[in-house]
Design a protein around this nucleic acid. Structure first.
Length: 620
RNA sequence: GCGCCUAUAGCUCAAUUGGAUAGAGUAUCUGCCUUCGAAGCAGAGGGUUCCAGGUUCAAAUCCUGGUAGGCGCACCA
């Protein structure tokens, strides 16, 4: 049961109660529930198997330390381009300058220091121009890496970096009374993936859905509902009917200017708790949330706490009062309350309208303060479109004036998604709805499965179509860095070839197929016998070894696309290996090594896709 | 007018945040299924990294000034 249904039930029992006070009370119960499950998760996470460091990074650090000790601080170990034929490169220009030598001489000095250390995992060291290049011993890297994957399996790549740290992630936040469109896809999918990525690194993450369930738009809807509703249509498809009413309102408002004023009044009355308006409003919310839940289920999106903007309604007066007292805001002559900036170089904005009703920013500030108080997080991350960058700058600056550390808040903006014919507008009927996108994705994937594997049962085909179709939608979004604008096309969003979800799922299915056919089961102990003999094996093991650091890079700047790109490269390495080196026909240590490589690739693909929110399939 | 974001192969995007000869997919052309799944693999062609200056041993990346597109700039969210 969602919170709006609970409010409605409570109001039925006690019709004279203040709806928003009831919401506050019920919301606190939700918060309590989330807190206790968060504590349980933290305890469990602390016991999760993990590694403090993984082989590849461990080697890198040891070399770094040695150079710092023998030659000088400040040298960084990097990954050279492929042509350099090395695993680590240390650019020595900086050291050269410091020691007043030429770069090549400095590189020679660094190379000599690494050589002197006689690391068992180092094969060779060479000074090339201003770089010192280090090549690792294939077998040393392979043995340690394959052992780590075999040992950790589904948690290979995980860490405890975020142990005992709490992160609040604010994402998705669709608007009640409107269908979710592809405009909400990015926030939802990026947020859900970041949640998994942070959790994988030991953070306790609370995914919050700050529903757009309040504001003047509801005044509009309430007015339209009273005047033009079609009860039969509402019963049949409430969201469609709400959409129709919303569009209708704007058409009528063009002709009748008084309508906007009616809407503002209606919203004011709603804010004050008018029972009749509240009950209509609750009905809109109940219908919408159940629709959203269906979409979240389809997309595999996990959200812990759903609290709409309305939840903060009874906290706003205190926020405004305190803002005035702390001199963060000023009261204008007309009764509105404004926040003005000077040294911050930001435009002013309003916390309260002249009629006394609230605004989006007020609710965001109340929400932020509430979250800080209840959860004591390390950080609150807002996954919200770039068009709201200014809004968040203003809100964060205001929160700072109210005494909160600015470093607690982060806005992860992403580019606008629009259609080839222009900006999306629900109002003007120019939008692609998520429900339709998901259906179309499944349909296209189904056609392809049926064509490629007609012998599969109907149920299997449907399962595969769901995983592939939805996976494709998620992958196409997550594979590009979030700050760029996207022009939506069905072609792009549902691409099933090239760098796409099915390409990765296919690698997983092939790997699993080999493992099924192998008469030998492999285990952790086999890792001791690995021996790398071909260049394809050598490339593949290096890729697998770098998975843990890839995870870390993703959360460094909240960029899941780094993982998406990595997985595609891994799949390419695997496919080359698969084509060149036969696994089942190999013998002895070579066969063991290759089986381990296959099972490790499968694990990494599975873990990686899971972090992006994409399902893997044993067969497809 | 001011602010933020973006500009890389015909098209869609990457590029270890200042590192070596800028890489993938797609499209085009050419090969590979009697051997682990061809939703695959190999190869070819394709670049003034928007323009002009500057900083640096080193610039797609940083600075300055332009150009083009997108998004914002108090009683919407």
């Amino acid at each position: 049961m969602n919170i709006y249904e609970k409010i409605a039930r409570e109001l039925k029992k006690n019709p004279r109660a203040d709806a928003f006070a009831v919401e506050e009370k019920l919301g606190m119960e939700e918060v309590g529930r989330v807190k206790s499950s968060m504590q349980k998760n933290m305890l469990r996470a602390a016991r999760n198997p993990h590694r403090e460091t993984y082989p590849y990074v461990a080697f890198q650090r040891q070399i770094e330390r040695r150079i710092a000790h023998d030659v000088g601080k400040g040298a960084r170990v990097e990954t050279p381009p492929e042509e350099a034929d090395a695993d680590f490169a240390i650019p020595c220009f900086f050291l050269a300058k410091e020691k007043k030598k030429n770069p090549h001489a400095a590189a020679q000095e660094v190379a000599a220091a690494v050589k002197r250390a006689e690391f068992p995992f180092v094969l060779s060291v060479a000074a090339v121009g201003g770089y010192a290049n280090v090549k690792l011993r294939d077998d040393a890297l392979a043995q340690e890496t394959l052992k780590a994957v075999a040992e950790l399996g589904d948690v290979y790549g995980a860490s405890q970096e975020g142990k005992r740290k709490i992160i609040l992630l604010d994402y998705s936040h669709p608007n009640v009374a409107k269908p979710m469109s592809v405009g909400h896809l990015r926030s939802t999918i990026i947020g859900a993936s970041l949640k998994r990525l942070y959790e994988f690194q030991g953070y306790a993450v609370i995914g919050i859905n700050h529903l757009g369930d309040f504001g003047t738009q509801f005044g509009k809807l309430l007015v339209a509902y009273e005047r033009w509703r079609d009860d039969a249509a509402f019963k049949k498809d409430p969201i469609k009917e709400m959409l129709r009413l919303y569009v209708k309102f704007h058409e009528e408002a063009e002709k009748d200017l008084a309508l906007e004023e009616r809407a503002r009044e209606a919203f004011k009355k709603l804010e004050e708790g008018d029972p009749e308006l509240v009950s209509m409003w609750l009905e809109f919310c109940i219908m919408s949330v159940s629709e959203f839940d269906g979409i979240y289920r389809a997309l595999g999106v996990d959200i812990d706490l759903v609290l709409g903007e309305s939840f903060y309604q009874r906290k706003l007066a205190a926020v405004i009062e305190r803002s005035l007292k702390e001199k963060a805001a000023v009261k204008n002559d007309d009764g509105s309350v404004a926040v003005n900036f000077e040294e911050e170089k930001l435009p002013s904005y309003l916390l309260q309208k002249k009629d006394g009703s609230s605004l989006y920013a007020t609710r965001d500030i109340a929400a932020a303060e509430f979250r800080l108080k209840e959860f004591a997080p390390e950080k609150i991350i807002y996954v919200v479109g770039g068009e709201q960058t200014l809004h968040f700058k203003q809100v964060f600056a205001t929160l700072e004036r109210l005494g909160h550390d600015k470093k607690l808040f982060r806005h992860d903006p992403f580019g606008l998604i629009s259609l080839p014919e222009g900006k999306m507008s629900t109002r003007e009927g120019r939008a692609v709805f998520l429900e339709d996108l998901i259906e179309e994705a499944k349909r296209r994937a189904y056609d392809i499965v049926s064509q490629k594997n007609p012998e599969l049962s109907e149920a299997e085909k449907k399962d595969i179509a769901r995983a592939v179709g939805i996976g494709a939608v998620i992958y196409s979004d997550l594979s590009q860095s979030r700050e760029k604008d996207i022009i939506f096309t069905w072609e792009k969003a549902l691409s099933l070839e090239g760098a796409s979800a099915p390409y990765l799922q296919y690698v997983y299915a092939r790997a699993m197929s080999i493992l099924r056919k192998a008469e030998k089961t492999i285990s952790e102990a086999d890792a001791a016998h690995t021996s790398i003999t071909t260049q394809w094996e050598a490339k593949l093991i290096r890729r697998i070894a770098r998975f843990p650091e890839t995870i870390r890079e993703c959360t460094a700047g909240d960029h899941p696309h780094i993982l998406a790109t990595y997985l595609n490269a891994l799949a390419q390495d695997f496919n080359r290996f698969y084509n060149e080196d036969s696994v089942l026909n190999a013998e002895g240590d070579t066969k063991t090594t290759r089986l381990l490589l296959v099972s490790s690739t499968a694990h990494v693909i599975k873990n990686g896709l899971h972090l992006l929110g994409i399902k893997t399939l044993e067969r497809m």
